[in-house]
Amino acid sequence: MPFLRKLLLPFSLLYGTIIFIRNKLYDWGIFKITSFDTPIISVGNLEVGGSGKTPMVEYLISILKNDYKLATLSRGYGRKTKGFRWVKPDDEAVFTGDEPLQIAKKFKDVNVAVCEDRVYGINKIKSGNDVILMDDAYQHRAVKPGLSILLFDYHQTQKFRLLLPAGDYREGFGGRNRADIIIITKCPLGLSSAERQKITTIVKPFDHQKLFFSSIIYNGHLQSLINHEKFAIVNINEETTVFLLTGIAKIAPLVNEIEKHSKRIIHHTYADHHVFSKKNMLKLVTEFNALKTDKKIIITTQKDAVRLKTKELETLIKNLPIYEWPIEFNFIDGRQNEFNKLIQNYAEQHI
């Protein structure tokens, strides 16, 4: 543990005490928990940072959208607006948050909303929608979800569990007991049964919980931010220089994927949910144009792409080969149909 984080241990103890008391007040009924007749599926985690919540929500949308009218609700982290707001595909991320906008652009038939007060937000969107998906809502105890999905990043499962601010946990590991389904995300594609058993022993699911293992798969084609053309990733080779632009929590998986094709990476990295400025883009454009080769490309993530789609920034990058790299949620142990059936049965039985 870094020395500076060790200094924060007393604050973690105080934080943990507050969270423990808060959860008990909900458990004892002193703080109100609201239930709804509309089926609600919650997706969340215990840690801060990227564990694949938005890809999970998108996967849920993909298996439910043909049979049900769907709505998603999240806080809209990083937005400069307050209160309830419907998210439209032509919005800018500064008003909605990047992840809700990403969903709105990808699934135009899904109603996407943001609101800090989840109870108020659900009351606003429940009419006319069959199922509501709550993104990043595991700690929002004021709402009682009908089905709760908890995600753990595979790469973090064997690390020591410390609460904020010394560690990365939002609440104690025992909080996992509220989940109905636990998913270990971002697993290596070749994860062995022995390794799955090891992780199962670490996570210690309760008897009422189903445990699944999943991975993130990078699509074989990049998608242009400007003209929507596709570029096959196989066309990137060891002679290609990749300018990588990211503002996400965990970048190692993407870097590792690019390195399978080219080691020549110039990484422009920013903090998670970073609002890209004109200065940021001018720096990227200048460096890109200064490199004297035709074998060069700019790659970013889907989440970062929505923050680049503003009138000011698109003017700067409109003549550059800049692409987002789509990702897909994948179950690695042959239990995709089992998971799908759990979700479909829940929706069917509660409508």
Rank of each mutant, 00 (worst) to 15 (best):
Pro165Tyr: 08
Lys144Phe: 12
Thr241Cys: 08
Phe288Thr: 04
Asn235Ala: 06
Thr315Ser: 11
Gln349His: 14
Tyr154Gly: 03
Ile265Trp: 01
Ile18Leu: 13
Cys115Leu: 04
Lys210Gln: 14
Glu328Lys: 13
Phe107Leu: 09
Asn330Ile: 04
Thr185Asp: 07
Asp136Gly: 11
Ile103Gly: 04
Ser127Glu: 14
Ala71Phe: 05
Ser42Lys: 12
Arg176Met: 14
Thr201Phe: 13
Phe331Asn: 11
Gly78Cys: 03
Asn319Tyr: 01
Lys283His: 11
Glu348Pro: 00
Lys53Asn: 06
Phe276Pro: 01
Leu14Pro: 02
Lys210Cys: 08
Lys144Asn: 15
Lys80Ile: 01
Thr241Leu: 03
Asn227Ile: 00
Gly78Leu: 03
Lys80Asp: 04
Ala290Gln: 14
Ile30Asp: 03
Tyr270Gln: 10
Leu64Asn: 02
Ile183Thr: 05
Asp304Cys: 05
Ala252Pro: 04
Arg75Asp: 00
Lys263Val: 00
Phe36Glu: 07
Thr201Asn: 15
Asp136Trp: 11
Phe36Val: 12
Leu46Pro: 01
Leu8Ser: 02
Leu211Arg: 06
Leu282Glu: 15
Leu101Gln: 08
Gly334Arg: 07
Ile299Thr: 03
Asp168Pro: 10
Ile19Lys: 07
Val143Ser: 08
Asn337His: 10
Asn23Cys: 09
Asp272Asn: 12
Ser214Phe: 05
Ala137Ser: 15
Asp168Phe: 12
Lys210Val: 05
Lys210Asp: 15
Arg264Val: 00
Tyr169Pro: 08
Asp207His: 14
Thr17Asn: 12
Ile181Trp: 11
Asp304Ile: 05
Pro39Trp: 14
Ile351Met: 13
Met56Gln: 11
Ser148Asp: 15
Ile40Gly: 03
Ile298Thr: 05
Phe160Glu: 15
Asn235Val: 03
Tyr323Lys: 00
Asn66Cys: 02
Leu189Ala: 07
Leu189Val: 08
Lys303Gln: 07
Pro326Val: 09
Thr81Arg: 08
Ala252Val: 12
Leu150Lys: 10
